[in-house]
Each structure stands twice: as C-alpha cells, then as structure tokens.
Amino acid sequence: MAIHLPRVQKRRPVCAQQRAANEQARKGMSPRARRQARAFYLFISPWLLGFIFLSIVPLLVGLLISFSNYDGLNLMEVKFVGLRNYTRAFGDTETQYALQRTALWTLLNTPLWLAISFGLAILMNQNVKGRGFFRTVFYLPSAVPVVATVWIWRIYLDKNYGLVNGLLGLIRPGTALPWLTDYALQSLTAISLWTGLGSGMVIFLAGLQGIPTELEEAARIDGANGWQVWRHVTLPLMTPVLFFQLVLAIISSLQAYVVPMLISPGSGNGLNNLPPRGVYLYMIHTFQQIFVFRRFGYGIALLWLLFILIIALTFIVFRTQRYWVYYETELEEKKA
C-alpha cells in the first residue's frame, strides 16, 4: 500500500518518454507509433467525449447563463445582463453572511479533521492490539450514506428525544440543548468528523507506514530521543501527505451542503427548506437562489465565484508549500 506523493522524481521518466515521442512526431511517425496513437485516442474516446459534452459544454453554458436573467422557463425571451449577476453578489448581504459562515466552518472543520485523524494514525501506528478492529470501526461511517447519517444524527442530537441531551439530563435534569438549531455549526462539525476521521486516518497511517524504518533507526543511533525523532524525521516526511489532505479538506469544506441542508428536524424532503442560520453556508445560499427563487443566472454566477475562490485558495496553499512541505528530491536537485 504505497501512498502516491506528488514527487518530482516520479514524473521525470514520463517526461523523457514524452519528449522522445514528440520528437518522433515531428520527424514523421513510424507505423508502430501511428498505430499506438490511434489506439490511445480510441481508448480514451468515451472519456474525451464525456469531457467535452459533460464538462466543457456545461461550463460554457453555465458561463452564458451567469451573464443572463435565465429563470429556468424564459429561454425564448432571455436577456443578457452583462456582469450584473456578479456585481450583485458583492452587494448581497446574504451572500456575505453565507460566505462568513462558510469561512468559519472551514476554519473549524479543517484543522480539527487534520489534527484528529493524524493523531489517530500515530496511535494506530504503534503496536496496538486489535488494530484491524479499530480501523474497521473508524472507517465504518464513511460507508454510511448521507441520508442515513443525517437521520442518525437527527435523533442522536434531538432537543427533546435525543440521546445526548438524555445523557446530559442524568447529570443535570431537564437539559434540552438545541443542538440542531442553535448549535448547528458545532453539530455539523461533529457529523463531519464522525464521517471523515476514518478515511483521513487511513491515509495518514499509510503515509506513516511508508516511512523507511532505517531513517528513524539512524536518528536514534545518533542519540535522538523519541520526540526529536518525531519532530525532525517523521513529521517532515509526513508534510507532503499533510499538505495534500489540507488542500482536499479546504476544497470539500467550501462545498458542503447536503448535511447542513437536511440537518434541521422539520426540514422535509428537499432543496427548498431553509436550514438553521448557523449553517447557512455558501452552497445552501446558492441552491436557494436556484431552486427556490429560480434565479439561475445569479445562482450560477455564485457558483463561478466559489469556483474562482477555490482555485485562488488552492493556488495560495500551493505557494506556501516551499515553507513547510518537505520533498526528498529537492536536496538531490540542489546537489546536482
């Protein structure tokens, strides 16, 4: 079980091969190369068609709609309104509110998930009895579909009938904390940890197990104590995994919507119910615009803005890599 780390080293042979292939193409392809190229494009054609018609075309159509007043029904008399949908987003206090809640939620969820799942992986990497049992238990919630997850937590945290308030009631009778409404953001974080700890732990554990034991042993022979080995050998070698997980956590936190949408007890069946204000996240706000108010133009403009925000954040996080992410190959490159 080797984890895929974004190593520079690994890409090199592919680049060399590709360069040779391009060279070959310029000189005119050999019959074998031509056969290969034909086979390649034939093999990828279903995906390529899907990419064109299910990604590129919808992206362009979406872009067009975001510049229009399309409401789902007025296709014949649709008008283009320029950048109005985009400028509107900046003046919309509800959008700003949703963005604040999303930022808060991301700042709450991401570090907690990273820290706890990494901590669990460290514990599990010791000589633990019943490691298989714990791994199965921790990963189990990832297999539970989201609708069931929501129902499990609705009855667990219910203000009047939930187990959590019931147990708290043993200590302080009459406890009826409104977890799902007033503390919705905290509850959402708990649900998200419940679902995600297992997969995070599994990836970190694979990373830890991929660290060659010689490195740690060598440090020990040099007289490093347990903490020093961890701080100066193990942790640096884990930074690529941490980095990768950080990027994924940010991206998925910003897009959260199903659980917050369904979390409140009386929320009925679908897209038109309004979740508690605490979890009025950006995506919820966007889907409200589209499915409740039928403002397709404005809603898709909001989606594009989120998309741009995600790309910008990812880019920034990638730029911070050189300050804290350690790649083995960097040293070799400097030497060369």
Binding site: V61, G62, I290, G299
Partner: peptide
C-alpha cells in the same frame, strides 16, 4: 486535464447539466 478535473468541483457543472 484528467488531474485538473479531479479538482474542478462537480457543483459548477451540475446546474448547467441540469438545464441542458
């Protein structure tokens, strides 16, 4: 492109897909 698509959130394409 395959790798880039891993990063592009499905939420950006799903609403236009719904319209189409």
């Amino acid at each position: 492109i395959v790798i880039a698509l891993l990063m592009i959130p499905a939420i950006v394409t799903v609403i236009p897909q719904f319209v189409i």
